[in-house]
Design a protein around this nucleic acid. Structure first.
Lengths: 349, 349
DNA sequence: TGTTAGCACTCAATTTATACGAGTGCTAAT
DNA sequence: ATTAGCACTCGTATAAATTGAGTGCTAACA
């Protein structure tokens, strides 16, 4: 059986209705509210077809229909257009290029959650070909050295290193010079064992110290080590009865959000997919129920979007809500935030 | 009416029982399980008295009794002793003096939550008389300077500062010297306007830059600016029916935990109280229901404890759970963690 | 042939009635 | 002072009855 124009319209009406009310929707409702003039009986016939085709389902005989995952998917892919719905004006974005990226990201997460009334997560931006900008060693006290490592994109890493022997200012200066001359501008791949050995040799008795510094450099450059994830509005999940009818389910969802690791994987995967060329215009992806690789999200939908700061630093943000989330609003909110982050960094950079 | 020996015993039995089961407890139960040989009727008379005195209450006529806030308070203050209950062996503490304090604290929070099965929060340690250790300016690129500020207790703050004009290496070196000579070892109070003006004068055309650095120093030293709070196990709250019977309540509790600010105040207050001399031996404090200044915690109990790292850096950790939480276990877990943190830092320092 | 009115049927949710039982307070006997 | 006994309360559990939104099917209709 193939999809007729009329079936499409009815399916859309069902989904729209369900998104609003969260209740199964019956034939009479559709007959009344929709613009086409059809009796409930006719609608029923069509609905019966739609069910056979897998787009909708009945929680029990003699109840209205609700969209299946396949139904939602159809809606997201084909029906959802930018109907110019008023997304209520987003709070003026107060995101300011904060000193610490973490503060900015936390702000953005909160903004997303507050505006959508769903849960929001955001990952720190990942750089894939990042290079070391410079290293600065400083003597903090008799036997500790602070290594400050700056990576392209201005990611800063501090590492306190203990040294056993005494270390005079002059030596620190020399080591600084040594490290910077050899390492500046290099990427992870370019710092190979040969180079490391060379530097250690030149460092003489301080080769241990230099080793520690290089370890720290590796840690700073490696993207996945730096992955941090912020979340906000997890408790918005509690607003949706279909997610709270069962305490175990709720708990699973909330702890998955709290623990974050799983979302790390999801977002990374999603980011790769976007990068991998089959670029849909906006970089927004929707995972409905079981489409998501995260088991505990089977009753939720997850919408992810990329964002980009200067220097090609790309990260992911995502919204977690019930399957009947307001996809349009979510997509719009994400897009807006993408734009604003973009503008913020383009302008001031 | 005053408290007899027997009343105390009965009250304790009631509370112990309620802590275990979460169900109102009746006279027959007490008569049976308690060691004294009294008929239910006698118990009932005593219970009636206890109710009049405000230690217990009936959810409805003809149900058993549950402890009131006052009852819990009595229990915590007078009845709860270190009965050598087996707190199941705490997971070997994997806390390692992590590079970033934030990682350590997050770990501790998780440890607390996992061991108690309640929600846990921990604040970053606060120092009250902290002094600047040193400042390091480095030129990152043509027009940005990285200021690294190290405060006693090895708190590190990075600040990126833009400069308009060109800046050669030599100037940076001079500024470094200037700042360090004048500021090292000083506390917030000692850096006064006179001193600031003096330094700015000496910095000549770079007085703006120096101003920014000094602002950053102030920010780094001021304790309350650095207050960070980590939480874990918020969803453990969902395990307790008395906290989830009503979705609004649950949501309030969870968002209070997520937002953290309110706990900041609570913990600060609590820390002051402990410092303020009426030091109870362990620095553990219990807030039962409305005793806590946080409105949304009225159905919960909050147990706070201080911890101390090296250099007198004191912070707070706290456990949030239902009023019928296992106070003994919680207190014990907190004490153990205090000890471990202590040991960890004493040993390696 | 597509549409619709009509009707019997289903089934979750709501209401009502009933029984149960854990627990109480009070009184009178020990 | 303690306790056995008893009437009473009231939340909860169970079952039966009712309601109503919704369906599928059939037959009539344009």
């Amino acid at each position: 059986m193939e999809m007729s124009e009329r079936k499409t319209k009815i399916l859309e009406a069902i989904i729209r209705n369900y998104l609003e009310t969260g209740e199964p929707v019956g034939s009479r409702t559709i007959s009344k509210c929709s613009d086409m003039k059809l009796s409930p009986a006719t609608i029923r016939n069509e609905m019966s077809d739609l069910e056979e085709m897998g787009y909708i389902l009945q929680p029990h005989t003699s109840s209205g229909r609700i969209p299946s995952d396949k139904g939602y998917r159809f809606y997201v892919d084909r029906l959802m257009k930018d109907k110019e719905k008023e997304v209520e004006e987003m709070h003026e974005v107060v995101v300011q290029k904060a000193d610490q990226l973490s503060v900015l990201l936390q702000q953005v997460a909160k903004l997303l959650a507050d505006n959508t009334h769903y849960a929001a997560m955001i990952s720190s931006p990942q750089i894939h070909h990042n290079k070391l900008k410079f290293i600065q060693l400083s003597k903090v006290d008799a036997n500790s050295i602070l290594a400050v490592i700056v990576v392209e994109g201005n990611i800063i890493k501090n590492k306190m290193i203990r040294v056993d022997g005494e270390l005079d200012d002059d030596t620190v200066l020399k080591l600084n010079l040594l490290l910077n001359t050899h390492l500046n501008g290099l990427s992870l791949e370019e710092i190979n064992l040969g180079l490391i050995t060379l530097i250690k040799e030149r460092a003489g008795i301080h080769s241990d110290l230099v080793g520690s510094v290089i370890d720290a450099v590796a840690e700073a450059i490696r993207a996945d080590e730096n992955l941090e994830i912020y979340s906000s509005g997890a408790n918005n999940i509690l607003k949706y009865p279909e997610l709270t009818d069962n305490n175990t389910k709720t708990s699973e969802i909330l702890s998955t959000i709290e623990e974050k690791e799983q979302f790390g994987r999801l977002m990374e995967e999603s980011l790769n997919e976007v990068n991998a060329g089959n670029e849909n215009s906006t970089g927004i992806q929707v995972y409905i129920g079981n489409e998501s690789p995260i088991q505990s999200m089977k009753d939720c939908s997850v919408v992810t979007a990329t964002y980009e700061l200067e220097d090609g630093m790309k990260g992911m943000m995502s919204i977690i809500g019930p399957k009947r989330m307001d996809y349009e609003k979510v997509a719009k909110t994400l897009k807006r935030l993408q734009d604003q982050l973009d503008a913020l960094y383009r302008k001031k950079d």
